[in-house]
Design a binder for these strands. Structure first.
Lengths: 140, 140
DNA sequence: CGCATAATGTTCTAATTAGGAACATTATAC
DNA sequence: GTATAATGTTCCTAATTAGAACATTATGCG
């Protein structure tokens, strides 16, 4: 995937207009100069991460949404983005299933919690062993 | 909400270690100098948005998680609660924490999903072994 | 249309900041 | 305890940014 700043800067313009704000209004909210906004929107300058986070809050969208990051499409988290931007949509089945699976499997839930409480190195070791273990059971 | 870069740079360090990579390995993946990684992790320099997006892809997490975007997190949790209260299922805060844990830990998440897809008997076997495994690591 | 002014775009400058290479320190393995 | 891997730091150069001032374009209204 090729990443460029064009989408990001274009999105800033898009979401500002969606809110019906002028560059000056947005600049005031961020307490920066208006000309900076103009340069962001025309992709002359790329906003720093702090400004982007503030923008995502002001626009009430996720950072991933703001920067047009869809690389995690195959991840569970992609749905969170969707849910976040349209509250009427139910949760993704995958997420719900994972939750319900853990809620209905106290044993495994507890084990995950125990893993969660271990130091990182030990977590990694367990994951390595576990991966092998599952491999074997999948093969049987 | 106060935003600072500390969380971001700390997270880079955290997720790199979670993957068991050296700074050099991460630098190679990003095709940049290792010293830059070091400066990121020590909050001497703040990575630009393009690098952050690449990092989120490499770490396989969302940008929001990488930068520790809390406002996003709260909204997600609200959604969980909404969905679950409407299902009259008792809402379990512990599960939320687990989901959070799994979201920032793609490897383990995947393993749980694999377990979920196994037949019950095999699930139980794995849980038994896993329990013993965790025991040992907790004792060390 | 033609004017006023709101909105946006661009240029210039000063200052900050990032990145890489080299060097310094700390951690780890044997 | 030493060798080496891993990480931290400094110095330098190059690139980037924010703001102010100025230029252009868009919009509303008589």
């Amino acid at each position: 995937m090729t990443i460029n700043t064009e989408i990001i800067t274009h999105n800033i313009s898009f979401f500002r207009k969606q809110k019906n704000w002028t560059q000056q209004e947005l600049a005031d909210k961020l307490k920066i100069s208006r000309s900076v906004i103009a340069k962001w929107e025309n992709n002359i300058v790329t906003p720093d991460i702090i400004s982007l986070i503030k923008l995502s809050e002001i626009f009430n969208i996720t950072l991933d949404h703001l920067v047009g990051n869809d690389s995690f499409r195959h991840d569970i988290l992609k749905e969170f983005k969707r849910v976040y931007s349209s509250k009427t949509t139910p949760f993704d089945d995958e997420v719900i299933e994972l939750i319900e699976f853990l809620m209905t499997n106290p044993t495994l839930k507890q084990e995950v919690q125990r893993i969660k409480n271990l130091p990182l190195k030990k977590q990694q070791s367990i994951q390595t062993v576990l991966s092998e273990l599952i491999d074997q059971f999948e093969k049987i």
